[in-house]
Design a protein around this nucleic acid. Sequence first.
DNA 1: CGCAGCCTTGACCATTATCAACGCTGGTGG
DNA 2: CCACCAGCGTTGATAATGGTCAAGGCTGCG
Lengths: 248, 248
Amino acid sequence: MNAVVVQLRPQSIDCGVSRRETACAECGARAFSVCDDLAEADLERLDSLAETVRFAPGEVLVREGDPATKLFNLTGGSARVFKLMPDGRRQIVGFLFAGDFLGLATGKTYAFSAEAIEPTTACRFNRAAYRALIDDSPALGSALLERARHELAAAQNQMLLLGRKTAQERIASFLLDLAERDPMRAQAPDALHLPMTRTDIADCLGLTIETVSRTLTLLKTSGVIRMTTLSSLELRDPVRLREIAEGL
Amino acid sequence: MNAVVVQLRPQSIDCGVSRRETACAECGARAFSVCDDLAEADLERLDSLAETVRFAPGEVLVREGDPATKLFNLTGGSARVFKLMPDGRRQIVGFLFAGDFLGLATGKTYAFSAEAIEPTTACRFNRAAYRALIDDSPALGSALLERARHELAAAQNQMLLLGRKTAQERIASFLLDLAERDPMRAQAPDALHLPMTRTDIADCLGLTIETVSRTLTLLKTSGVIRMTTLSSLELRDPVRLREIAEGL
DNA sequence: CGCAGCCTTGACCATTATCAACGCTGGTGG
DNA sequence: CCACCAGCGTTGATAATGGTCAAGGCTGCG
């Protein structure tokens, strides 16, 4: 397979993994090329651009306001992307998992911070060199544009969630979203791993940890979900959960 | 000026206005080319793709769920872009003004609806043909990617607003945002036109019309703004307004 | 001039935030 | 190996922000 750009899971295009890393152990089965027509020279350039980096939990990938010199492509683990207000209020604008790209929304400086949640590995690129490569390769450019479209659509869904949904609807939407975006480690169908803390979930959904906790208890009590441990649960009634998420 | 892509105002790249329309009366002074290197053949293609359309207030430009066959570029007036929940709850994900592009976040079907607020004119394109042109023209593609970046960054700011700001902070942010995005019709500096209804503002900020009204009254009373008519106001203390928006 | 639609204001209510206490759990050191 | 401690999560009581319901006032158009 001669592909720099691989799809690690549905609707998640990895635009950074170099050839050596294409056969990712975890997700190799799903990986397929969406960008076969890159020239050998481009592949060499990408290889020379990329470096593999590791982050411990809590470690900073990028900091809001810093000059945006690097782009990242998560190859393992997970990260939170967030914005802060001067008084410390935090809004998590997204979680990243293996295959997700960090830096699409980035201009001269980062408009958000990002931290690893778990031990995390990523492919790091020099932004300027990467952009030069995009300009040379229309296929890579349109793949990125496609990804930006998905992120924008996801952002609009999140606006609907934050602006108009109740606490229960938010939690239900969040769980379904997570199940769809991070199916890699599902041991069983409808099993779900929550690498992030309750505080992270609260800051993503515009709630407090208490409300998150109470709402999870509510869903648990009504039999829609079952919590196996603090960080893993089971969607016992995904259909009902979807109805709740949509406000039905 | 040989430019299909013109910048109508800072950070707003018009990727659709054909040559004939480049010298827009309202904003001609600010327009400049960001995409000079399009071939004459591409210009002809764009011309043949584009058609000018008019919308009366309330008229639908696109409807959520419909096949996405058209893209739009507003050349005058304004529009609201929104998502609906089954029970009618509405979230406005953005307002569009002259020079704004509609359809960036669009895949096979529209993920949002859009309606004209005022009498509105737009340049309409066939999506498939437009995408083909993008593939042929790297400059146009990267201009679109750049625009997608800005929209994504704006979406993240809106998430912070919806998830973590108080009613007063939301209104202040909204007014400042509007002042920045729609400076065209400013008669005086810090004068501001509100083409949308209170309901629109509420549905954009995740509030009710009553809260919007009360909060505007509050800002009026504290002397930060002054309302000239229902749909136009004056930012009397932009610095203080900014502080309020940031939660200081 | 009158009406319809939108906006404002007021009174009351509810969802969620805040404050507080307690419990679980995993890691560390005795 | 067990016990303690720190950090995170849960639960409860109370409070507040913003929502709901209701009435009245502009305003612009016919």
